[in-house]
């Protein structure tokens, strides 16, 4: 089977799956089958976190530049697009009313995503060009600082709600968020597998040697930072229009660290790792809510009250046992092939 036909079929299957899940989340359900609001919200946040982790992995995992300001760019995307939809959304709704309610809100969402991505990319360039001269911990501190500056600036703009928060129309649904998660994975995957991707990895491995091979390291570092920021912006747009409310508290440095945890846990420089990391970090604290209570004498002890402590312990032990993350730099495809070879079935080494 030719590879584009394979991709097309996979694409159709994925979109159909997302469509069914999206249907199950809506009021009436999908042919009677439904997903409750809590689960729906979790799935949405997994998809948004996949966008964030996969894009941060491009700069941290593949290019080897330790940035910890991803939440800042997410905020830029969220607020810039929200400003647009709050002020022009109603007009556009009537202008596109011939497409029906779903059609109109989809069009507006796409426009919002383009705006959010562009503004976040510009912010990425402004932050990246001066700071990517720095390395290691210096770069980390500067990006963290920039992300906080962005947040404080937004906090002081009254036109986007300031400290009281910002009401945003809910144009996003799971279908679109899922589609953009898939688009992010496909785009980052293609970058990594291209010649440019080899250049990025060589920068991670040894910047001076990469330069000696003829790689314009500054240009590649800035470009990957800008692309990464644009996707963080897209995640911000989707979050804003799903959550319907923005507060700068959602974009504190703790959010940046959460994304870092996802890629470190999954394995820096692994696409699969970023996706799995995003799923684990989103789901685990929620699953730990269901820990049982035990009766100690007259008082009840709630294990679920300790869920964040247990979550932290799980992270610590994972890092002790697998410092390179769950996947290291390997991908699910490599592991599958190795497994298949072990079983002695056809399909040799790649």
């Amino acid at each position: 089977m030719s590879s584009w036909l394979k991709s097309l079929i996979i694409g159709i299957v994925v979109i159909a799956l997302l469509y069914v899940l999206n249907g199950m989340m809506s009021k009436g359900g999908f042919f009677g089958a439904g997903i409750d609001d809590y689960t729906a919200r979790l799935l949405v946040f997994i998809a948004i976190n996949i966008i964030l982790a996969t894009s941060l992995n491009l700069i941290n995992g593949f290019t080897g530049q330790f940035s910890i300001g991803h939440a800042g760019f997410m905020a830029v995307g969220a607020y810039s697009s929200a400003y647009f939809t709050v002020n022009y959304g109603k007009q556009l709704e009537s202008a596109f009313s011939f497409l029906g309610e779903t059609g109109a809100s989809s069009i507006i969402l796409i426009i919002a995503i383009v705006i959010g991505a562009i503004v976040a990319a510009i912010a990425g360039a402004i932050v990246g060009i001066p700071s990517l001269r720095l390395k290691g911990d210096y770069l980390a501190i500067v990006t963290l600082g920039f992300a906080e500056i962005i947040r404080i600036v937004i906090l002081n703009i009254d036109a986007v709600g300031g400290a009281t928060g910002y009401q945003v129309p809910g144009y996003a649904n799971f279908l679109w968020i899922g589609i953009f998660a898939v688009i992010t994975i496909v785009v980052v995957h293609n970058i990594v597998k291209s010649d440019a991707g080899r250049a990025l990895v060589s920068i991670r491995e040894d910047e001076l040697a990469a330069e000696a091979m003829g790689v314009n390291t500054t240009r590649y570092k800035v470009t990957s930072f800008v692309i990464s920021s644009a996707f963080a912006g897209i995640a911000g747009v989707l979050f804003a229009h799903y959550n319907k409310f923005l507060s700068t508290n959602d974009f504190q440095f703790i959010k940046s660290f959460e994304i870092i945890i996802m890629i470190v846990l999954g394995g820096m420089g692994s696409m699969t790792g970023a996706v799995v990391g995003a799923i684990v970090v989103t789901l685990l604290p929620e699953l730990l809510r269901q820990l049982p209570a035990i009766q100690v004498g007259a008082s009840t002890f709630q294990f679920s009250d300790l869920r964040l402590v247990i979550f932290a312990l799980i992270l610590i032990f994972t890092m002790i046992l697998r410092p390179q993350g769950i996947f290291g730099t390997a991908e699910i495809g490599n592991i599958y092939r190795r497994f298949r070879n072990k079983l002695g079935k056809p399909g040799g080494l790649e």
Binding site: V201, S202, A212
Partner: peptide
């Protein structure tokens, strides 16, 4: 002139401390 611009001009360098890409294979 930036190092990467010298390569297309026909200058190659084997840097001090070798600078091989440790996580890439020999062929890569």
């Amino acid at each position: 002139m930036a190092t990467h611009r010298l390569v297309p001009m026909g200058i190659a360098m084997s840097p001090e401390g070798r600078g091989v890409f440790a996580n890439l294979s020999v062929r890569e």
